[in-house]
């Protein structure tokens, strides 16, 4: 059996992908509380067992994500951008730019045949990461799902311009006090969010196809707002949150061949 494993330890969810003789099996699991390395191991072993796989059957494991350094059983750890580039090469060979937005980070890469030519990440700042959407949903007292749906109901979005998530929060609160509609505030905030990402994409390249992945890519509103800002179609994988983990498993496979 040729089995390879890719694990993405994000800040909110753990993603495990198994590459078994060319077919994929995966698991996406949010952490219950703070990240614990032992939790990752426990979950991984259980997942392997449920799939009828012995740990000794796995030829190679590559771990990525912000918690990657804490996972002990992996052969190799890699930053997310390499895994992202690898997965994009495999599934979207014509794409030139990939954006991955997670809970606390985002990566924008310009790549060619799996090689990274340029990249931007959110350096020490919550703006443009999923958490700023969570903050928005918390102040407005709606779920992320409702947030996503309400975006499409707005005809007259509010103008929100703060890049900083904390200042965005103050802006949203003053719009609430002014009696603006929740959907208009949401659309304004999401357009602002997408605007920031679009500006960064333009810094990298905006000619070839763009892939959008990560947990935030599940939100249709963000994808629409991004398309609106970029004035072009973007490609979204079917399971956008596991892209990095798939990339990690592909790299695990490649390492074996070499």
């Amino acid at each position: 059996m040729m089995i390879f494993c890719g694990i993405d330890c994000g800040t909110e969810t753990l993603k495990i992908v198994l590459h078994v003789n060319g077919s994929l099996q995966w698991l996406v699991l949010p952490y219950e509380s703070q990240f614990e390395p032992s939790f990752v191991e426990e979950v991984s072993y259980n997942f392997f067992k449920n799939q009828g796989i012995k740990i000794s059957d796995i030829r190679n494991t590559v771990v990525t994500g912000s918690g990657r350094k804490l996972v002990t059983f992996a052969k190799k750890t890699l930053p997310e951008i390499f895994c992202l580039a690898k997965a994009v090469e495999k599934f979207f060979p014509d794409a030139g730019v990939a954006i991955d937005i997670g809970a606390r980070s985002f990566n924008i890469i310009r790549c060619k045949r799996g090689r990274i030519l340029k990249f931007i990440t959110n350096n020490r700042c919550a703006a443009g990461a999923g958490i700023s959407l969570k903050i928005l949903s918390d102040i407005l007292e709606v779920s992320l799902k409702e947030l996503d749906d309400l975006y499409f109901l707005s005809q007259t979005p509010c103008y929100i311009h703060s890049a900083c998530a904390v200042f965005m929060e103050s802006e949203v609160i003053s719009f609430l006090h002014q009696g603006k509609k929740v959907e208009d505030i949401i659309k304004g905030a999401i357009l602002n969010f997408a605007g920031k990402i679009a500006t960064l994409i333009a810094e990298v390249e905006n000619e070839r196809e763009i892939v959008f992945s990560g947990g935030v890519a599940r939100m249709k509103s963000i994808a629409f707002a991004l398309q609106d800002k970029l004035k072009k179609q973007i490609l979204i994988p079917q399971n956008p949150e596991i892209i990095n983990a798939i990339g990690a498993s592909l790299i695990a496979q490649e390492m074996d061949i070499r």
Binding site: R104, R124, C125, A126, I131, S132, I135, C164, A165, V166
Partner: peptide, 10 residues
């Protein structure tokens, strides 16, 4: 305590 994060949210 040492607070390592720069961003207020983090």
């Amino acid at each position: 305590e040492k607070i390592s994060n720069y961003c207020v949210i983090f």
